[in-house]
Design a protein around this nucleic acid. Structure first.
Length: 576
DNA sequence: GCCGTTTTCGGCCCGACTGTTTTCAGTCG
């Protein structure tokens, strides 16, 4: 899909126009269009073919034309034109905290600074202070910020953000400085990665709460500290053990504005614009303090009151992306999203027979303790050599072990499956005679990631059409921050899956989250059943289910759309 | 740039905070 490529170009155009001092609203239009493209479930190329690009909210004639231009020629002339005016590296300066378009323009045109290294050198030599608007403090701050920008400011995995949020909430409660505290922002919307963490709190003594916040263990820098807003950078260790930092904003609210603040700071930006526009049409004013008719606050203490003041049903945070959810809320047609408690099992679980760390019995017991009705064991097949894949004989030899586990257990069932490699041309790594002896089969790509789009698509379509294959594992194989998705016509794959009765997976491994929410929504729209699995390699990984369900909710899935929310009988019928 | 059941022109969100000012611009979200 070219959606993201075009979005990246629109964002770059916006940055360049910003530095050139163009009109703000024109810049905002490019940024809004970019966000729309990023969260669009449809393939923009397809929309161009159908002549429907300008139906995307925020995209009018001019941007539609640029999108069509990119789809047909692979370039946007306007983008090239602007690029020619900028030395490479200038746009990187915008990524430095504290530098916006105005200051970047000054640095570039008055001091000839065109990249991060140049900025660092100039700051070290105290050249910046010679320019109006730059002082000693700014120079110091920029020196620190430039290092962060060079590191590339990776977004946090959702699972790590959850742990950080947990520790902040616990710390603030322990200091007894807050009466109420909750995380908002993209974390609450369950985005797969989180850029910063927004914490909202109610406190009688705001100063005390702010002081407790900046004294939190792990705070490496205080970026702002005011009456209602305190910002810090916090060190943490990610789930793979690497040290990282993340910005955390604390906002202190009045109880009367709690719901308004929660609504406002949960976002998304485009969702809020949509809702606020509705309010304006009704002669109401909506902001982070409430909904107001003239000077009178008519809503604000709860989020429900904010939506209901506009005759809207409360919208789950995961849906707030301006993808049509406001219209559904207005007409009372919001879907009943799947809940974590709807999940009855997990089909993607590894053991120490291949690359997991714990024996089959331990993984089964961990799943049972979670209250599941069933668990599927899916170790690697023989060709997955790095994962110490099992031979067909080894895979089948475990049937007795599983039978004896099932004999003793009431109300809990172990299914014996496989995560079977998809070989070069779409054939499976085990012979059909072996696959049919197993309860179910996940087909996954673990090799030949660089095949051309056409061949890769044909390979996956062939695999999902195999009558023994029940589930397509981590369909795009992307790993966030490491490896992009394979080249693939996903729509073709969804169609094949829907037709063959093969489910597609949301793999909740924090690095994978594959399918993504937008992809899973497209898969559902193509008629696919979705399975939300953890790809666990240790019993603790089973906790990732919560985040897979978050992505499923962002994809607007209901319990009926999700294979592992079904009863065992219905699952068995699907696998049969 | 986009958008329209008050408008095809004239709107489009704005408050908090910092740093450098000498009354406020720039950045951020």
């Amino acid at each position: 899909m070219k959606n993201e490529e075009i979005a990246a170009r629109f964002n770059e155009i916006a940055d360049m126009l910003d530095i050139l001092g163009e009109e703000t609203f024109r810049i905002l239009s490019y940024q809004r269009a970019a966000r729309q493209l990023e969260s669009l479930a449809d393939d923009v190329e397809e929309l161009v073919r159908q002549g429907r690009v300008d139906q995307i909210p925020g995209i009018g004639a001019a941007l539609a034309e640029k999108i069509a231009e990119y789809v047909t020629t692979g370039r946007i002339a306007y983008h090239d034109e602007l690029r020619a005016k900028f030395p490479p590296g200038v746009l990187d300066l915008l990524k430095v905290r504290g530098l916006g378009p105005k200051k970047v323009k000054i640095l570039w045109q008055q001091l000839g600074i065109t990249d991060l290294d140049g900025l660092r050198t100039a700051a070290q030599r105290h050249l910046l202070q010679r320019v109006k608007g730059f002082g000693e403090k700014t120079e110091e701050n920029l020196l620190r910020a430039v290092e962060l920008a060079k590191e590339g400011q990776a977004r946090a995995f959702l699972v790590d953000a959850a742990r950080v949020v947990g520790s902040i909430v616990a710390h603030m409660h322990a200091t007894k400085t807050v009466e109420r505290i909750e995380a908002a922002g993209s974390f609450r919307r369950m985005r797969e990665t989180v850029g910063d963490i927004d914490i909202l709190a109610v406190a009688k003594d705001r100063g005390a709460a702010g002081a407790a916040f900046v004294r939190m263990p792990g705070v490496v820098e205080t970026l702002a500290s005011g009456e209602t807003k305190v910002v810090v950078r916090l060190a943490y260790t990610d789930y793979e053990g690497s040290p990282r930092t993340i910005q955390v904003d604390l906002r202190i609210l009045d109880p009367a504005s709690w719901g308004a603040g929660l609504q406002y700071f949960t976002g998304s930006k485009d969702h809020n614009i949509r809702v606020r526009t509705m309010a304006e049409r009704r002669g109401l004013k909506m902001n982070e303090y409430g909904v107001f008719r003239d000077e009178t606050r008519i809503a604000g203490d709860t989020e429900e009151s904010m939506y209901s003041a506009l005759d809207l049903a409360w919208i789950p945070p995961e849906m707030r992306e301006d993808q049509g959810e406001v219209d559904l809320a207005a007409s009372g047609r919001l879907p009943t999203l799947i809940e974590p408690t709807d999940i009855r099992g997990d089909f993607h679980v590894h053991t120490n027979a291949t690359d997991g760390t714990e024996p089959l019995e331990a993984m089964v017991e961990a799943a049972r303790r979670r209250g599941y009705a069933y668990v599927g064991i899916s170790d690697h097949s023989v060709s997955a050599t790095v994962a110490r894949g099992m031979t067909a004989e080894q895979a089948l030899a475990r049937r007795d072990r599983v039978r004896s586990l099932n004999r003793g257990a009431k109300g809990f069932t172990v299914l014996l499956g496989t995560e079977c490699d998809i070989l070069d041309s779409g054939e499976m790594d085990y012979p059909d005679g072996v696959l049919k002896e197993l309860d179910y089969v996940i087909a996954s790509v673990h090799s030949r990631f660089t095949l051309p789009r056409k061949e890769q698509t044909a390979r996956l379509v062939a695999a999902v059409q195999n009558p023994h294959v029940d589930l397509l594992g981590h369909p795009t194989t992307r790993q966030i921050g490491w490896r992009g998705p394979i080249e693939l016509d996903l729509d073709e794959v969804y169609k094949a899956c829907a037709h063959a009765g093969t489910a597609v997976e949301i793999d909740a491994d924090p690095r994978r989250m594959d399918l993504s929410a937008t992809q899973a929504r497209a898969a559902k729209n193509s008629g696919c059943t979705i399975s939300v699995d953890t790809d666990s390699h240790a019993s603790g990984n089973l906790d990732w289910m919560r985040f897979g369900v978050g992505t499923a909710r962002r994809a607007w899935l209901t319990a009926d759309d999700v294979l592992n929310a079904w009863t065992l009988d219905r699952v068995r019928a699907f696998f049969a």
